[in-house]
Structures are given as C-alpha cells and as structure tokens.
Amino acid sequence: MSLSTTLLVLLLAYSTNASHFYGTVMTYHPKQSSAKGSTITVVLRYKLGFRSCSDSDTWGCFSGNCGNERSLVVKTISEKKGEWCHSEGIMTRLVPSNGLFQLRIQGRNWLENQNGVTAWRAVTLVELRNRSDTNHANRSPQTTILPALRVPSNCLRNIQLLAFDPDGDEVKCRYGESRFSECRSCNKPSVLSLSSSCRLQFNPTDASGVAFAVQLVMEDFPRQTINLTETNGKLVTKTPKDALSKIPIQFALKVDPKVTSCIEGIYLPLFVHPTPTNGALLKVFVNHTLTIIIHAVAISSRINNQLLLSSPSNVIQNSTVEGQFVLSWMPNDDQGEETHAICFVVHASSSDNSRNYYSDLRCVAVNVEKGE
C-alpha cells in the first residue's frame, strides 16, 4: 500500500471515529393484525441525533423474531448549525406473532463527554401480546427528546421528561444498565439525579463548557395485575411490579458558563400564557390542523426567534413577534390512532451573541383520532 493510500485510510478512519452521536429515542405502536391474527403490523418511530446531517445509522434485530422490515422513511426534521442534526425515522415491521422481540442500534462514537461514555448502544423491547384489560396489544410509552439540552453551571434545573402511556400504565425511568445490554458504557452523569417519575435534576457544578451523555430507559407497568395472551393462546401474568416494554431516551446535556441570575424570565426564557403546560394531552383529528402557540419572555437576554423542536416531521414552525412561536400540524392517515410527542426549548442569547440561554424543556402529547 502506498504512503498516500495509507494516509487516506487513516484520515477516513479518523473522520468515521470522530465524536458525533447525540442520542436517540424510539417508541412503537401496533397497527393491525391479519384476519387470523397470525401476523402483526407494528410502526416504530425513532429520533436520531448526530453532529452532522451526513451521519446516520439503522436499527437491527437484537433478540426474538423481529419479522420483516416492510418500509423505512427517514427525514431530517431540525438542525442547529454547528451543533447537531436531528432526524425522524419511521419503520414499519411485519412480525409473524406477538412474541417479545428487541431492536438495537449501536456505534462507537458518543460526543466527547465528562462521564466517559465512548461507544453507544440503545435497545427497544417490543411487547405486543394482547392485554386482558384493554383487549388490545400493548403500546409503548410516548415521549421524545432533543439531541442536546443546555443548563447554566450554577443553576439548579429540573428536566421533566414527557412520560405518557396510551394504555394508562404507570411510566417509570431509570438509567440504562450494562447487564441488559442497554448501553455499552453505562456511566451515570455525576451532575444529575433521576427520579422514577422521569424527572432529572441538574445539580450546580464548577465545570462549564462540558457535556454529559445521558442514557435512560423508560418502561411501562400495568396498574393492576393483567394477563397477556400470546398468538398460540399461552397466558402470561404481569403484576404492577413487572415492566412490559422498554424504550431508550438518550441525549447530551451541555453545561454552559454561569449566569448572573437563575430566575427564569431574566436571562433564561420563561414560558408564559398561552403556552401549553408541560405534559398536557391535546387532541386532533386526521386531516385537521392543530395549532400550538408558544410564548416565552426574557428581560435581560434576546430571544432569537429560534425554537428547538422534536416532533413529527410534518409539524410546521413559524415565528411571529419576538418570543412567540406557532406550531401547525395536520396529521395524515398514517399518523392516525396514535399518540405523538412534541417537545421544544426556546433559545435566547446575550446582546453580543457570546452567551446562550435555554428555557426548560416543555412537552405535550397529542392524541390523533380518525374521523369526526
């Protein structure tokens, strides 16, 4: 091999191994069974965050009978230049039975972080067995996340993740564990405390200009003892202590320099009316338009008419006056009879653009119904 060829190979290896992964989240929804109930169609929706829009990856079967991937649509839905690119993937699989299966995605290069996470892995456990309480297949919790959230180093901040379950189950969060192969380096961020109710608390630190890799698992638990029926008629009992499905929530937490005041509405944008409350459940019909108005204020920083958004890719974002945004969404037939998550953060900056200030994470769940 010539010297020039060797240098080219090394350069390609370096660029491939550059720190670039910004996390992922996946949810699923069973759509229909065949006439004899022997095959099931399940739609899996996921987000992937990378440093560049040229980066991508795919989910593969990890365990169980994952069936056949019938279609996959990937769309870039938001990009913040120089930081990250966010994409939505919609995967449709036809599985031969309602037995458990797991999907996995993995790679080598988390973004550079303080908790020593290098290689990355995420796992989704799909539970499709028929529930005795709903007489339908189990559905996963619904949530989403931005590739990166930012907090000032000197402020106590709470991050309440959206944790909505369409079956009415109790939803809990925990850190990923190596023994379940849910991550490859399952090191917890030292600056975060996690409650089972999916609330993260950032504790002030002397460090700034650094990032942490956050690798969580969200699970649904029945509120009463139920039976799950397999395609072959076998019954399995689940109690409120037994998790049904699990989905990954992985993202980067970036720590910014100290802010003069931690009170929201001064430097950090504060959400005001008519912004929906965090965790609100909204409703819309297929082919009808849902409008969400978001308003944020900050008296000592400038809101840049930039709303960072994680949502279905056909949500349209517009900015009216400073600090006010309008989201418009007309769900299509493929999005009907599902619950979809929309999360957003408002970005503000100092007058000279040298400092960035981010609002809290705010999320809503939208139930899309067919026909009116």
Rank of each mutant, 00 (worst) to 15 (best):
S2D: 05
T16S: 04
T16D: 04
S19W: 06
S19M: 05
H20K: 13
K31N: 14
Q32V: 09
L44Y: 01
L44F: 03
L44G: 00
Y46N: 15
F50L: 06
R51L: 07
C53D: 11
C53L: 12
S56V: 02
T58V: 12
W59L: 07
S63N: 11
G64V: 06
N65A: 12
N65C: 01
G67E: 00
E69W: 01
R70C: 12
K75D: 09
K75Q: 08
I77L: 11
I77P: 06
I77D: 06
S78Q: 14
E79K: 12
E79V: 12
K80M: 02
K81A: 10
K81L: 15
C85M: 04
S87P: 13
E88F: 04
I90T: 14
M91I: 11
L94G: 02
G99W: 09
G99D: 15
R104W: 02
G107R: 09
G107Q: 01
W110I: 02
L111N: 03
N113D: 05
G116F: 01
V117A: 12
T118G: 04
A119K: 15
R129S: 08
N130G: 06
T134L: 01
A137C: 07
R139C: 03
A148S: 13
S153F: 06
N154T: 04
Q160F: 02
L161W: 07
A163F: 02
A163E: 02
F164L: 04
F164I: 11
D165R: 12
D167H: 04
D169G: 03
D169K: 05
D169I: 03
D169P: 09
E170R: 02
V171Y: 12
C173D: 06
R174Y: 15
R174F: 08
R179V: 13
R184A: 05
K188V: 10
K188T: 10
S190R: 10
S190L: 12
S190K: 14
S195A: 04
L200S: 09
Q201V: 00
F202M: 02
A207G: 04
A207H: 07
A211D: 12
M218A: 01
F221Q: 13
G233Q: 10
T237W: 13
K241E: 07
K241G: 14
D242E: 11
A243D: 04
S245A: 12
K246T: 11
L253M: 00
K258H: 15
T260I: 05
S261T: 06
S261R: 05
C262N: 04
C262K: 02
G265R: 05
G265I: 00
Y267W: 03
L270V: 00
A280V: 07
L282K: 03
N287K: 10
H288D: 13
T289W: 03
T289R: 03
L290V: 11
V297P: 06
A298R: 07
R302Y: 06
R302F: 10
Q306E: 15
L307N: 11
S313K: 07
T320I: 05
V326C: 03
W329V: 09
D333C: 13
D334K: 13
E337K: 11
T339W: 14
T339N: 15
T339Q: 15
C343E: 00
C343H: 01
F344Y: 14
F344Q: 07
V345Y: 10
A348H: 08
S350R: 04
S351R: 06
S351L: 10
D360V: 01
A365V: 14
V366A: 11
N367M: 12
V368Q: 08
E369K: 06
G371A: 13
E372T: 01
E372I: 01
